[in-house]
């Protein structure tokens, strides 16, 4: 089952998906994957299919919603959009992330003792 390390990865991927949907509105799985890759994240480096595990998880938590629609190239695809509770979660997570990264950043900036 899920290892602790995977949990961290999962968490970051969840956060990235939420943020993506928050900024670009409704999007299908492919679009989200593209977007995350464009930012340069390595989360989907091995395979893009992983994104769907993340999406179903977020749907189950009701942070995003899904509906079938038609893409700009006229292809049937499932479109996801962030929900109200998803926004709240994103805000919480963002704050949390910033606090943690802030602390870590400070720790890393400490001058080495010579």
């Amino acid at each position: 089952m899920a290892e602790p390390k995977a949990d961290i990865l999962q968490g970051t991927l969840d956060l990235m998906v939420l943020k993506t949907l928050d900024s670009i509105g409704t999007m299908h799985g492919y679009g989200i994957a593209r977007r995350i890759e464009q930012i340069g994240a390595q989360a989907l480096a091995v395979n893009q299919g992983t994104i769907y595990l993340c999406l179903i998880r977020l749907v189950q938590k009701k942070w995003i919603s899904a509906a079938w629609g038609t893409s700009e190239n006229n292809r049937k695809a499932k479109f996801y959009s962030i929900t109200k509770s998803g926004r709240k979660q994103l805000a919480d997570e963002t704050e949390n992330w910033e606090r943690v990264s802030g602390v870590i950043g400070k720790v890393l900036q400490l001058a080495p003792r010579r």
């Binding site: 299908h28 799985g29 492919y30 769907y52 893409s71 292809r75 049937k76 695809a77």
Partner: peptide, 11 residues
């Protein structure tokens, strides 16, 4: 399956 198929098609 359908979702993955459409993903592959777009890719």
């Amino acid at each position: 399956d359908r979702e993955l198929e459409s993903h592959i098609a777009m890719l």
